[in-house]
Design a protein around this nucleic acid. Sequence first.
RNA 1: AGCGGGUUGGAGUAGCCAGGUUAUCUUGUCGGGCUCAUAACCCGGAGACCGAUCGUUCAAAUCGAUCACCCGCUACCA
Length: 754
Amino acid sequence: MTGEHVLICVAWPYANGPLHLGHVAGCYLPPDIHARYERALGNRVLMVSGSDEHGTPITVTAETEGVPPQEIVDRYHAINTQALLDLGCIWEPNVDSRGIEYGGALFNRTSDSEHKRYVQENFNSLLAAGLFEQKTMQQYYEIRNDGGRFLPDRYVEGECPNCGEDGARGDQCDECGTTYESYELQNPRSKMNPDSEIEIRDTEHFFYRLDRFQEALEFHANDRNPHWKANVRAMTKQWLDMGLRPRAVTRDLEWGIPLPLEGDKWKGKCVYVWFEAVQGYYTCAKIWSERFAESDDWRKWWCVSDDGVAPRHLYFLGKDNIPFHTVIWPALIMGLNHANNGLGDEDPVSLPGPGDLALETNVPAMEYLMLAGGQFSKSRKHAVWLPSFLERFDPDTLRYYLSINMPENHDTDFNWPDFVEKINSELNGTYGNYVNRVMSLGNKLGGDNPLQIHDDLDRCNDDKERLEQIYVQLTQSLNRHRYKEALRHVMSAAQYGNQMIQKAVPWKYLSEPGPSDTSEYSDERRQSLSKLSFGWRLARFMAITSQPFLPFSAQRLWTMLGQTGNVSDASFESATDWSTPITWSTISEPLFSRLDLEAILEEEQTLAQSEQVTVHDDPGHGVKGSGKKTKTKEDENMTEAPEGTTFLNFETFMSVELRIGTITSVEDHPNADKLYVVHLDDGTDEGRTVCAGLKPYYSVDEMMEKQVVFVANLEPRKLRGVLSEGMICAADDDDGAVKLITVDGSISNGSRVR
RNA sequence: AGCGGGUUGGAGUAGCCAGGUUAUCUUGUCGGGCUCAUAACCCGGAGACCGAUCGUUCAAAUCGAUCACCCGCUACCA
């Protein structure tokens, strides 16, 4: 188990916003823990990732801010790189301290010119191997003075050919759910620039022949099934059962990697982001080799050896990314092998053999970390961003809490009271306090190395055995990617230490100086102090085994124990090396400090308020997903109108027709979770129907018969299939409370409000 | 409504794929102890009809079916 090549692949964060705690728990902390663990085992670890810097959402952000896309990605690449380093992730140094043959790490970026070059190379070889098919598609094109551009389906809206609803998207109507070809859309327009002229043009695109890999992938999935977690098994199975179809690898885009093809018809086309970013695992390893090692060294981490041994590949990512890594990426890898082996269109594809690029060993995907009570994006004030967290707290407190609360099997919550409680009672009470006990008891004995003379391992066989047992359990858990459980095992050592000290009552013997020759001590005293000495060994065990989880405090402890160098360079096995001579240092300080919940909550409140003002346009809200990127951000950016506080003139205000109505019936919306369908008596014979999103705040009974204020001249709009002819007014506050506006006394329905 | 995940002592969780002693651990709570240590630590107790129902089985938290509720995504909001 020593000297193995292990490639740790970390999902590429999208450089469109800062990382939040959800990202950290989902896909940035686990790989760091694992990489540190593999290193400590003596394995050769190469860790690769970087910023995903292409794609439409970034251009949208750039457009909104009026800056070039490069400026956006430069900004967030810098912020996120720094935040990950501050968290203690071993992205630096790039070369392993044990030597280049042990690997290292590179946090690269997809705008790297070498990355581009490799992607283009791969594109060409896959093309040559007949793994692409070419299709002509119809796509909307926005005609502009500066040249114009193709519009993705999401950026086109018009009237639905089926229900006539305005606001339907290019390929699907949200109201009636129909999908159609984009040319069927009526009165299409660009969502970004509604006034510009748009037309349908033919556009040529390449598709990757995923379908050709169906069989190989099924075989691969069966092979990996026993190792995969349930969520990975389920998601992969679902994809394979649906049947794989060719998938587009090119798009009409400006910001990305251009197609490496000659000819006008390929101008303005880029490689699809998914196709390109996912190759980062491979290009990053190559680039690392070129910059820091021999140019062929990457093969040790990527290629199956001549005798058929594959390097271990571990991919860390959020659950939304699973199929990309168990289906699509393996298909690309096999495609590259196919091409590199000079095979073509006619030849069957196959699983990797000697010399080929290897497929993944495991994909320990995490579920999501949620923010307490944070359901809606407007509760953005609840979001916890990594950079701002690290400004205020010891990174190890975060690492501890996220590890012990890791969303391994299902979504988990981040909340401040729980965070404070875990840090205070577990990290401080059990671990910190244990260390502090040993250190201060030792110091009270006095001398340069007070515990060394009491070292008597023959009296501590049970204790040795217990720690050895914990060590076995710990490594088993880590090997199975059960980080939560693993950290519990580490903590159980501290707990055992507290019990051992408690039982040995060494404080009884502090005040008796006794003879200088320990052999003349009473047996009780020798027994007691030998346990205290073993307490030092247990603390050293803690330093080594907690290092992957809590690197900063492990190092502090290591130094306090009088050990030299870096604890991260100590081998994991040496945690139970009882022959190590006991050392001591003059430094002794608490490992962690207690947190004050009240103060934190107050600070959060202040921070949240200021944040709401300054980053109102930030799209990366919420602490939800760990890898969910394009979709939500795209939407937020698209829909968020620029905010400004200009004064409303009187006429404009009067154009809003507010009227009084009585609620006559309330029903659940047949097709929406949060909507009621409300009938109002608005003074007319037939009344009117309004959809209201009040389900979370009001029961049917509470709403019935209330006289409320509603907007009468709002453009009628279908909400999930039901026509809503107005809007019921309600007030909401920062705490998320929502209350209907009612009338003081009674007045006839239909009365104007002004 | 579509897709995915969940429901286990007050809270958070393990166990479920490969059914089988007293259902795990952390925290909280109650009682006791200790005083070296950060209102800390140690010992002991109480506390769970494992979401509901039906089925398979000698045996179900675990397998199958149905239902309910919760969460996320899609979507939606005042």
